[in-house]
Design a protein around this nucleic acid. Structure first.
Lengths: 230, 230
DNA sequence: TTGCGCGATGGCACTGAGTGCCATTAGTGT
DNA sequence: ACACTAATGGCACTCAGTGCCATCGCGCAA
């Protein structure tokens, strides 16, 4: 049969992941040995380490692929699209990847919630998205005054919004209108932090005024005049 | 001599940390065994694990203490201080702790930069500040609409600002006006994300207006009126 | 000074993760 | 049927981390 080889590799890989998730959930992470995972998947212990570099990696099988997708969004984004918009699109892709996983994502959430070692690993994974996003934003606006600071903050905000929406979804066991919530969250981010983006492309300074609804107009005006002169 | 016992414990602890940093920098992290660290500090291998739960922990000796300081700021903060202000104060304390370390902090930066395993560990440490801050913010504003989202984003932004300032300082080998930059960064955060804080305590809605400097006042007014009616 | 108690130490043995090496096997093309 | 190549699995090894226990150093009371 043609292409039977990569097909088998994929099946073994999935069998290892499935066996590991099952064992981790039932016996606990520390209590499960690699021998047991390999045996449950019908392969030898040595083979396990040919598919995954460490015991932790077995439940994060496609992290690299997701990171590549993010990088691709950045590489192919039109140059006139606002940086934050690109960042939100890229991170939205990660969210979709989680949703595509279905039950697996929920199981992994439980594992990372219950076992510190796996949680630490997930945090590191999430951080690599943060790195990628921030690097892109720095490249776009890094040469402006405080551009690097803005990029760092905006990048972490985008990732935080993603994490928040995703976690709510996973906490609920995979129910809820994730995409709608994500859209709202990303809109909030773009509206709140989109300032430097505008500044970077059109003008040399921006004023942000925050005021309570119901504040007298005269008050509003004086605050804005203050801001414009600052 | 009185209090000679805890004194000795502290000295052994510092000797282990110093030996580890030295060996990691010269030989590399993976290439250094716990035996070597212990021997260089003049103690047995078994003793090493009585001071630090793992090989990684030896270069993050007082992370727990810093986390406690953060928690203390949150516990003792006045109830009428804006949440973001409290968060910035707490994180500022962490920054000060790094500065107090002097050379050690710079050396650790280099280690976490060069060795992935240590980097992963530092990311996890930093994440625990993020957790602490976000939890506090959620407690303060979590019952508002989108309060949890705001808390997550604001928490990560505060931590990101801290990380940015700290990293710039460490990259420069410990030179530069850290505190001044930190103040500016935190001010930026409070001004950009302080909205929900105000909303949570005084009013039921807030309007944010973003405008370019130089925009005609009439324009400004119409934009704000639009916003107020939204 | 001597003996007692207690925490710290270090040695020893053990488990399990991760790796290099090599003989064997399974699948593919001729 | 045969050769070639990639995958496999077994074996042995290093090293992190842990439980156990005998010993040591030190303060304290008799």
């Amino acid at each position: 049969m043609t292409s039977g080889v990569p097909d088998r590799r994929r099946r073994v890989r999935e069998a290892l992941t499935a066996a590991a998730i099952d064992l981790f959930l039932t016996k606990g992470y520390e209590e499960t040995t690699v021998d047991e995972i390999a045996a449950a998947a019908g392969v030898g212990r040595r083979t396990f380490f040919r598919y995954f570099p460490s015991k932790e990696d077995v439940i994060f099988p496609d992290h690299e692929a997701r990171l590549l997708r993010v990088a691709e969004v950045f590489a192919t984004a039109p140059h006139d699209e606002p940086p934050l918009s690109v960042a939100c699109r890229a991170v939205h892709g990660v969210l979709e990847a989680y949703l595509d996983e279905g039950v697996i994502a929920v199981q992994r959430y439980r594992l990372t919630r219950d076992f510190p070692q796996l949680r630490a690993r997930e945090i590191a994974s999430a951080h690599s998205y943060h790195i990628a996003v921030t690097r892109y934003l720095v490249d776009r606006v890094g040469d402006e005054p405080d551009g690097a600071l803005w990029a760092e903050v905006a990048g972490s905000a985008v990732v935080a919004a993603h994490n928040h929406v995703l976690r709510q979804y996973l906490k609920a066991g995979g129910k809820g209108d994730v995409l709608g919530k994500a859209d709202r969250a990303f809109r909030y981010i773009r509206e709140t932090l989109g300032v430097t983006a505008a500044r970077s492309e059109e003008v040399d300074d921006v004023v942000v005024a925050v005021m309570r609804r119901g504040m007298p107009l005269a008050n509003v005006m004086s605050r804005i005049e203050d801001a414009l002169e600052r």
